[in-house]
Design a protein around this nucleic acid. Structure first.
Length: 287
DNA sequence: AACAATTGCAACCGCAACATA
DNA sequence: ATATGTTGCGGTTGCAATTGT
């Protein structure tokens, strides 16, 4: 019989809880520097900390561990979170975080809940559907594959940090010089290599997790081949222009983008522009 | 200025999977 | 085979900081 709540037997009375002090952080760092990571049940004693082992582990993994990236999420990171969340569902934060160097599962989860979660998206959807956003222009956007350079894939695998001005996207003939420029090119699209490159891109991230079929589905923008539990997710198919054959997108999405896998550059600007966001939040308060 | 409401994030808790005796 | 110990994960909470009234 499986033993329930195994931690109960080890609960200590009088152990400290709540925020960690600098002194405690120093003790934990020193302990792990000396004995290495792991054996968490021994850590409180070895470190001389009046904390439970879980608290020690969490503090190290979410805050003290070297190479943890702090600060705002980049557009690439948010894009990746949206895509992976779409693919993997709501309970795979560690898997998603595993593909974001320097980000912890807790960070990703918090980011999703505060910036990308359903509540936020519903509010945004209400805004986008409101009369204030009525003057949409319709334009034809040539669909482009999203690809990253080998450098980025290497960085993702090795957990390296991005270096200033490093090129991450392989856009044919692109003269972009920063990751942001590359990302803009990526979203607007600047090469024609088709779905194959996208498959490679996903493969580099999820090679050991997904079948070729699933990778192809992701690359083509249709997620119909994922696990059954994800069957509720279905991407709206944009209309196709008869003459060009290219898909037609609204300049801003009017459709249910809470279910949309694609990443919208204007949406990103919206999220990252405090004034715009706050004004809009005020507008739709009470919806 | 004072209080209330909201937000964002660090930390906690319960549980399941895995490891070991 | 089973009981016990350990680890890791996701959902949730608590609270300080910020914003609104």
């Amino acid at each position: 019989m499986r033993r329930m709540a195994a931690d109960h037997g080890h609960r200590l009375y009088g152990v400290r809880k709540g925020a960690w002090s600098e002194e405690e952080d120093a003790l934990l760092r020193e302990c792990i520097g000396k004995y290495g990571e792991g054996k968490w049940h021994q850590v409180p004693l070895k470190a001389g900390l009046n904390r439970c082992r879980k608290s020690c582990r969490l503090r190290w993994l979410n805050y003290l561990k070297p190479n943890i990236k702090r600060g705002e999420f980049s557009m690439d990171e948010a894009d990746l979170i949206i895509r992976l969340h779409k693919l993997l569902g709501n309970s795979r934060w560690s898997l998603i975080a595993g593909r974001l160097p320097g980000r912890t599962a807790n960070d990703v989860k918090n980011y999703w809940n505060t910036h990308l979660g359903k509540k936020t998206m519903l509010r945004l959807q209400a805004l986008m559907n409101s009369a204030a956003a009525a003057d949409y222009q319709t334009k034809v956007i040539k669909p482009r594959p999203r690809t990253f350079s080998k450098t980025l894939v290497q960085c993702m695998r090795s957990g390296q940090q991005q270096q200033q001005g490093q090129h991450f996207c392989t856009n044919n003939g692109s003269k972009s010089s920063t990751i942001k420029d590359d990302a803009v090119d990526l979203i607007s699209g600047k090469d024609d290599d088709g779905v194959d490159k996208q498959i490679q891109w996903w493969k580099s991230l999820l090679d050991d997790q997904l079948s070729d079929q699933e990778l192809a589905a992701l690359a083509s923008g249709s997620c119909g081949l994922v696990e059954e539990e994800q069957a509720g997710y279905e991407l709206p198919q944009p209309p196709v222009d008869d003459r060009s054959g290219y898909k037609i997108y609204e300049e801003r999405p009017k459709t249910d983008f809470t279910n949309e896998l694609s990443f919208d550059i204007e949406l990103w600007d919206f999220f990252t522009d405090d004034d715009q966001w706050q004004t809009s939040s005020g507008l739709i308060q009470g919806l």
